[in-house]
Every structure is written in structure tokens, then in C-alpha cells.
Design a protein around this nucleic acid. Structure first.
Lengths: 130, 130
DNA sequence: GGTATATATGTGTAAACTGCACATACGTTA
DNA sequence: TAACGTATGTGCAGTTTACACATATATACC
């Protein structure tokens, strides 16, 4: 890390507190409701913390997800403009989304206790984690 | 990713939904209240999702944090047993912790809207993000 | 016809991060 | 002296991320 980056860090610029692979559940949730394709999914992702997405990151993630068997794709050419690779969520993908949701719920609780400790408002005994 | 790992993934075993560098704010929050050292901080971290911490990860993180100027350390030898490297939070560290807390609050809101969409309970208009 | 623009999908690569095995050392207790 | 709990570290491979760059199709405009 450079001097300048350290400076930026301690001054509080830049920092993404999102979980690793956050793009994956965001895509899965979108596809659960409607089939879609990369370019469209990028807009959807911007609502979940990916305002300035690099397209490469998204397309690479989609390819990996297909390898992992959580989505499937096929070319859509029956229209004007460049072809689109349309994605569909698989059953494995739905299960994986469910698992992500459970993990996120657990993690929200952990972050909540962190933030309570940070702000000096400790948990009441009856609010304690299950 | 191996076939077996893909299987585990789609079946929902294993997955840590914590943000990148999560250990850093956890350490900083601990040090804000009391000075401490690696071995002790490991126990503290276990309350925030680091149940099975590899010591190497923690000690490496502490060294990096000192390089970044957010903590400072000195050897404590005036007692029985192996020497301890005692850590103190710096002003830059306090600022950095504040920034982490703000980022986490934002991240919580994002996750909340994700989970609402997932469970099919959309936000009421008056609950919308600032 | 040419060329600029919006749409659409990708690759290459270096840096950063993570997980996990392994290594070292001190003091107490058996 | 050997085992154990305490305490701090290194090496390294695999994963993730950031970001620059590359490619292709159709439409609109001059």
C-alpha cells in the first residue's frame, strides 16, 4: 500500500463493506423473478451497491456461475441489435440463493451487534441472538 | 472449483457473508476500548464471526494495520510467559473505524432491501432509504 | 458510403485478500 | 526433560477484485 493510499484510508475515502461475491446473490435474485442478460443485469445490480460496475466483472461472474451450475444461458438473436446471452436460474441456483439469504440474515445480526457496541448502545438481554 | 465443491455450494454448505477485511474494524473496535494483544484479540474476534481463526491471519493483519498507521505496538515483557506485542489505536485508526461504521450502516440498508425483495416484503414508501 | 453512437459481450493481468499448513519461542507443571 | 498452554510469526497457493482493453452488431446521421 502506498503512502497516498494509506492517507486516503485513514481519512476515510473509499471502502466497500459488501460481502465477498455479493454480485452472485444479486444476480440470482434478479433471475428468480425474470430471465435476463448481462447488460440488463448491470442496471439491476446498481441498486445493490454496484453503481460503477465494470462490465467485465459482471460477464465473468455470469460465466463462472454457469460453470457452477447455478444459472444456464442461451443466445437470443431474434431481434435487432447485438445478440444477447439470456440467463435462467437453475434449481441449484435457487437453493444457493436460499443459502445466501440465510447467511445474510445471520450476518446482519453480527453487524448489528458490532454497530451497537460501536455506538455504545448494548443489546438488551431479551434481544440477544437466538 | 471442483465438482465436489460445486455440489456443496449448490446444496448450501459453507459460506461466509462477511465483508472484505472485516477483521480490521473488529480489531479497531476492541482496541478503542482497551489496549490489547494478538492472542487476546483472537478471542474477541470470535464473537464477530471468527470462530475458527487461524492465528497467522490475525497477526499478519495486525502488522499490516500498523504499517497503515491505524494502530501502534510495543513489546510487553514485564511478566511471566512469552512476551506480548501490545497494540494501541491511533487517531487515524479511530477515524478509520468511524468510516467503517458508516459503511456498515449503509451496507446494512442495502442488505435489508435485498432480504425484503427476497422474502417478498417490499419496503413501504416511508421506509425508503434517505 | 462512411462513421459515430448505443447496445452487448467479452479477455488479460496485476494486486489484494484468504485459508491453511507450518515454524518458533517462553515459562510452568508434571 | 517432556509436555502443555501461551504467544507470535512465515510461506504459499488459490480466490477475488479492479481496471484497462478488445470485439461485434444495428441504427442514425451526414
Amino acid at each position: 500500500m502506498s503512502q497516498e493510499e494509506r492517507k486516503e484510508k485513514s481519512e476515510g475515502r473509499r471502502l466497500e463493506a459488501r460481502p465477498k461475491n455479493w454480485l452472485v446473490p444479486v444476480i440470482l435474485l434478479s433471475l428468480r423473478d425474470w430471465n435476463s442478460y448481462g447488460y440488463e443485469l448491470m442496471e439491476r445490480a446498481s441498486a445493490f451497491g454496484f453503481e460503477a460496475m465494470n462490465p467485465g466483472t459482471l460477464y465473468r461472474t455470469l460465466r463462472q456461475m454457469e460453470k457452477d451450475g447455478i444459472v444456464e444461458s442461451s443466445w437470443e438473436t431474434s431481434r435487432g441489435g447485438p445478440a444477447r446471452r439470456m440467463y435462467t436460474i437453475t434449481d441449484a441456483g435457487k437453493n444457493y440463493l436460499d443459502f445466501w439469504a440465510r447467511s445474510l440474515e445471520q450476518y446482519q445480526k453480527t453487524m448489528d451487534s458490532f454497530l451497537r457496541l460501536y455506538t455504545g448502545r448494548p443489546m438488551l438481554p431479551e434481544e440477544k441472538d437466538e
